[in-house]
Amino acid sequence: MYSLYTDAATQPQSGLSAGGILIIHDHQQTQLKAALHATTNHTAEFEIARMGFEKLAALVGDQAQQATVLFYTDSQIVSDSLAKHYAKHYQKLVDELLAAQAPFQLVLTQWVPEKQNQGAHTLANQALHFAEDAK
């Protein structure tokens, strides 16, 4: 079983976004940070979630077909959209995220408050500060 936490951070004035990915398996953590193409927080949340599943799939390889993933997000729109397989303004992003989840045997999505997503949140903010400094 794998636990996947993702979070995005966006600076509205600059339009910069970044994300954090935290993967936990057998008490081992993999921490990843990434600059994102998204310019709004909602699109950034979808982008980092998709990226998290892509990174996890690359990490586990062929074992994905037998893997259960507990996916944690503090984004209500990502959580709700996955449950419905629909989002009025973000359907393309929902479809991309569902496709990234497809290799796994089972994905259970859980919305969590930001305070329970601190690992991914911290990584996202670190990546955003790095992107701002590099600009």
Rank of each mutant, 00 (worst) to 15 (best):
T43L: 14
A127I: 06
Q116M: 07
S75D: 06
F130D: 14
D74L: 06
T122V: 10
L106C: 15
Q101G: 11
A49W: 08
R50T: 15
T30K: 13
G119I: 07
T73W: 10
L70R: 12
V107M: 02
D95F: 02
L97M: 02
V112H: 03
L36K: 08
E132T: 08
V94F: 11
A64S: 15
A18N: 11
K88D: 05
I23W: 08
G52H: 08
L36P: 13
Q116I: 02
H129C: 12
L16E: 05
K33L: 01
F46L: 07
H25W: 12
T10F: 13
L22S: 11
D133K: 14
T10P: 14
K135P: 00
L82D: 00
Q118M: 11
V94I: 10
Y5T: 01
L93A: 13
L22F: 07
D26I: 02
E47D: 02
K33V: 00
L16Q: 14
Y2P: 06
K55L: 09
G52N: 06
V94Q: 03
H129F: 10
K33C: 12
Q105N: 13
L98V: 15
Y72K: 11
Y90V: 09
D95P: 05
L106N: 08
T73A: 06
A67P: 00
W111M: 00
M1S: 10
S17N: 10
L32T: 04
T10W: 13
A35R: 14
L108K: 14
A134E: 15
K33F: 00
A9F: 01
I48F: 04
Q101E: 13
T68P: 00
G52V: 07
I21K: 04
G15E: 10
T6D: 00
L123R: 05
E132K: 14
A64M: 05
A99G: 03
T39L: 02
D7G: 01
D95N: 07
E54Y: 04
T68L: 04
T73L: 00
Q118T: 14
K33P: 00
Q31C: 11
L32W: 06
A83Y: 03
V69H: 12
A44W: 07
A120R: 11
F104C: 03
S17F: 06
H25L: 01
E45P: 11
A44N: 10
T6V: 15
G15V: 10
Q11K: 12
K135F: 04
M1K: 00
D74K: 08
P12F: 08
L56Y: 12
G119W: 08
H27M: 03
G15I: 13
A64G: 15
L59I: 04
A127Q: 12
Y2T: 03
N125F: 01
D7A: 12
G20A: 04
A131E: 13
T10G: 13
A64D: 08
K88N: 05
T10A: 15
V60G: 03
L97D: 02
H89L: 09
Q28W: 05
K115Q: 15
A127L: 11
E54V: 05
L16I: 12
T39I: 11
L56E: 06
L108T: 15
T39F: 07
I24G: 00
V112D: 06
S3H: 04
